[in-house]
Write a protein that binds this DNA or RNA. Structure first.
Length: 325
DNA sequence: AAAGCTGCCAACCGCTTTATC
DNA sequence: GGATAAAGCGGTTGGCAGCTT
């Protein structure tokens, strides 16, 4: 038995909003607010619209200070950084970009930014096909049935940036940081799908080849640091995010090399072998728990933070999906 | 000039989370 | 603590505009 519809589908209007409807909704909300009940709102003002539709229209279009289009490079950087870090949590990403809506950012990512990043790398990687340690472009996604596109994209972006920016580092597995077991598992799964021949993924020995229950993995991930190896912090998304956002909130240029490199990358600057600064996203994430202050420092509303924080089980879905294959 | 293609974006759908009783 | 309703969220779709052939 399904859930009851929020409104009478037959009697509500669908499709684009007319200027009259916009004016009605805007005038009412500006005067009285939403009254805490979107469902009842359209009836109050005589709109033949679903409450959800009204809410969406207000949030994405009518709300004051909404910006449309014209994303700046700084915004590109933030979106890209956060996407790599947390995936398609558009509401969280939007919370870091004043005036932007989650829908806007989502559309922008899907139609432009993703192509700008993955597309360009596809070209650059085609030129370096001879090197099995250098990854291919986004098309390899097709070979990875079962893995979420979001997780895969993020992984690809991580690694593509690594390989582009620092071939020396990338070709020397000994220099690689220790990954979280989940991340290792994802890499291994990706490799195994291609019979280990997928040039997207360089071969890398797992240090400990033993099955880990997903519950344990989740717990480890929540802890951020392995209880058995405190000296080598795992790659956590939180720490990178804290860096990215703290830089942004302070209104100062980003201090992280990740940001700088990403900025350079987005601006299509050439990076040669001579420029071997250690571009290491992972290193950026080796912060302390203090970095977590971002989550509660008012950078975005606490409700959003709580409902979307790492303690939400959903964040592990991508990883688990890969692990459980 | 017109048909087909592609990119973009507003809006919808349905699932999940949160709040309330 | 469970049931229900509302809100929030992310994925998907439909339609329009501009471009290509």
């Amino acid at each position: 038995m399904g859930r009851a519809p929020c409104c009478d589908k037959a009697s509500v209007k669908k499709g684009p909003w007319s200027p009259e409807e916009d004016a009605k909704l805007k005038a009412y909300i500006e005067k009285y607010g939403t009254g805490g009940n979107w469902i009842a709102l359209p009836q109050k003002i005589g709109l033949k619209r679903c409450g959800k539709s009204c809410r969406l229209r207000w949030l994405n279009y009518l709300r004051p200070n909404i910006k449309h289009g014209g994303f700046s490079e700084e915004e590109d950087n933030i979106i890209c950084s956060l996407y790599i870090t947390i995936g398609s949590r558009w509401s969280i990403i939007a919370a870091q970009l004043p005036g932007r809506t989650d829908n806007d950012i989502k559309n922008y990512w899907n139609t432009k930014l993703k192509k700008k990043l993955l597309g360009r790398h596809k070209q650059s990687n085609n030129r370096s096909n001879q090197d099995p340690n250098v990854m291919n472009g986004a098309d390899d996604t097709e070979h990875s049935q079962g893995l979420s596109n979001s997780a895969l994209e993020r992984l690809q972006l991580h690694m593509q940036l690594q390989s582009l920016q620092n071939p020396f580092f990338f070709n020397n597995p000994a220099l690689w940081p220790r990954l979280h077991p989940l991340q290792e598992k994802m890499l291994q799964n990706l490799r195994s799908l291609d019979g280990n021949a997928n040039p997207l993924l360089p071969s890398r020995q797992l240090e400990q080849e033993q099955p880990i229950p997903s519950v344990t993995l989740q717990q480890d991930y929540l802890n951020g640091i392995s209880s058995s190896d405190v000296s080598v912090p795992f790659v956590t998304e939180n720490n990178l995010m804290a860096d990215i956002v703290q830089s942004n909130n302070a209104g100062i240029p980003p201090v992280s090399s990740f940001h700088a490199e990403l900025d350079e990358f987005l601006n299509n600057k050439t990076v040669g072998l001579a420029q071997m600064t250690e571009f290491d996203c992972f290193k950026e994430m080796n912060g302390s728990k203090d970095n977590m202050v971002w989550w509660s420092n008012g950078a975005f509303d606490a409700k959003s933070a709580s409902s979307n924080s790492w303690e939400s089980e959903g964040m592990f879905q991508d990883y688990e999906m890969g692990y459980n294959m």
